[in-house]
Design a protein around this nucleic acid. Structure first.
Length: 409
RNA sequence: GCGGGCAUCGCCAAGCGGUUAAGGCCUCGGAUUGUGGUUCCGAUAUACGUGGGUUCGAAUCCCACUGUCCGCCCCA
């Protein structure tokens, strides 16, 4: 074997597929109840979609995209799916329909990064996007969807963190105040933070550098930042969000340091974290992006959404056993065997047999591993037209005709 | 882009300069010629990541490369 899976990519093998199917089924169930519809968009898009949509100051666009050229077109493997869903929303004129428009999606995403725990170059996300609702009830709907989904997966002890970044109107103000608050000790911050100071000061709040964090604490940055005022509309929106969350008994932590890395977020941002994932601990990230639809050429349309990393979710979920098949036919008569297996399958059962007619002991051994019942079809059974059904978990046996078998089950 | 760990059969894994390179699991066969999950035998004729170097001799030491894992960064 000389050709191997590419760095940062993984085969999802049959032994682990049960977990994936389970996650996808629960997603479908939870999202359907809230009337979210699944949408599937292409895996590659015009590079410009991500440059304009995700933002050309982001790391994702600057250094992590798989971009190539075909027939003079610059194509990029999607690094996330919000931009693609917005593109589809516009392309199919969903803005002409009565809001809200609610989508969910699942699928692979691609980012050129150094792989490590919880980070691959091809990874999978499940996400939701909701268009057309300005009220914080939409934000809460999305957050509830996330917590319900996680609950469905048996994950109850995750922490929801929220923050508001303000709208485009008050964001400038916010940035200026933030810069003022940071200015006195700017020289003590790390190189990245000093670069961010002009380009994107919001991200300084998100810095994980120890010395930076110490400086933040010593200078009480957290207090001074949380004192920065959002404009009236944004403040009201944020208060509403919190009151809705309280009304639904959703526990959350306000984190004024929470800033998402993508440029399109406005007002609400949130993250759901786990303590059991190493350093890539965010399981879910999302927020409101009221300006994105317009940025991509559509009418002003408020929107909210989030995405979860399926591999990260899966790392928190115990491994599920693949379900066993119903019947394994044990016989030394291949013609009768394939006829019986065919009949079983046509009646809705899963059935398998031994393709080599080995001795019964070996066939049974195989049967016990993969099936709930063995059907023994030997000379006597064939001559007298009955089947011996063996329950492989308790070793009980009984004789039945085929008709009795399919009726009883 | 920057750091650190690790690379022995399909999987796990001993070995630490001289071995026919242990063992376990899985798979296959037999004990048990129509009955498994326990036990006991046996088999599996291309395993020391790749390329250099040191040495009489290297899976074992050195260098480079590649891969992988972990951390920084970023993000889901």
């Amino acid at each position: 074997m000389s050709i191997k899976a590419q760095k940062g990519t993984k085969d999802i093998l049959p032994e682990e597929i049960t977990n994936w199917q389970n996650i996808e089924k629960i997603a479908y169930d939870v999202f359907s109840k809230a009337n979210f519809k699944e949408i599937r968009t292409p895996i590659f898009e015009d590079t410009a979609l991500f440059e304009r949509g995700v933002g050309d100051t982001t790391d994702i666009v600057n250094k992590e995209m798989y971009t190539f050229t075909r027939s003079d077109r610059s194509i990029t493997l999607r690094p996330e799916n919000t931009a693609g869903v917005v593109r589809a929303y516009l392309e199919h004129s969903f803005y002409r329909e009565s809001p809200p428009i609610k989508f969910w999606y699942k699928g692979p995403m691609f980012r050129y990064e150094r792989p490590q725990a919880g980070r691959q170059r091809q990874f999978h996300q499940i996400g939701v996007e909701m268009f057309g609702v300005e009220d914080a009830s939409a934000d809460v709907e999305c957050i509830v969807l996330a917590t319900e989904f996680l609950k469905g997966l048996g994950l109850n002890d995750l922490v929801v963190e929220i923050n508001s970044l303000g709208c485009s109107v008050c964001r400038k103000e916010y940035k200026e105040q933030l810069k003022k608050a940071i200015a006195p000790f700017l020289s003590g911050l790390c190189e990245d933070c000093r670069n961010r100071y002009e380009k994107n000061p919001l991200r300084i709040l998100d810095c994980k550098n120890e010395t930076c964090n110490k400086l933040f604490e010593e200078n009480h940055l957290k207090e001074s930042v949380s004192g920065i005022k959002l404009c009236n509309d944004c403040a009201t929106h944020y208060e509403k969000l919190k009151s809705y969350l309280n009304a639904l008994n959703i526990k959350y932590v306000e984190n004024t340091f929470l800033v998402r890395g993508l440029d399109y977020y406005t007002r609400t941002v949130f993250e759901i974290k786990s303590n059991n994932l190493g350093s890539q601990n965010a399981v879910c990230g999302g927020g409101r992006y009221d300006g994105l639809v317009e940025t991509l050429g559509g009418p002003h349309t408020p929107a909210v959404g989030w995405a979860m990393g399926v591999e990260r979710l899966n790392a928190l979920i115990p491994k599920l056993e693949a379900p066993k098949i119903d019947y394994f036919v044990v016989s030394d008569n291949q013609v009768e065997t394939i006829k019986l297996v065919d009949k079983l399958r046509k009646n809705g059962f899963s059935a398998e047999f031994d393709y080599t007619s080995r001795k019964f002991a070996k066939q049974l051994e195989k049967a016990a591993k993969i099936a709930n019942y063995a059907i023994i079809l030997g000379e006597d059974e064939i001559k007298n037209n009955y089947l011996t059904i063996k329950n492989l978990s308790d070793s009980t046996q009984k004789k039945q005709t085929f008709d009795e078998l399919i009726i009883k089950n």
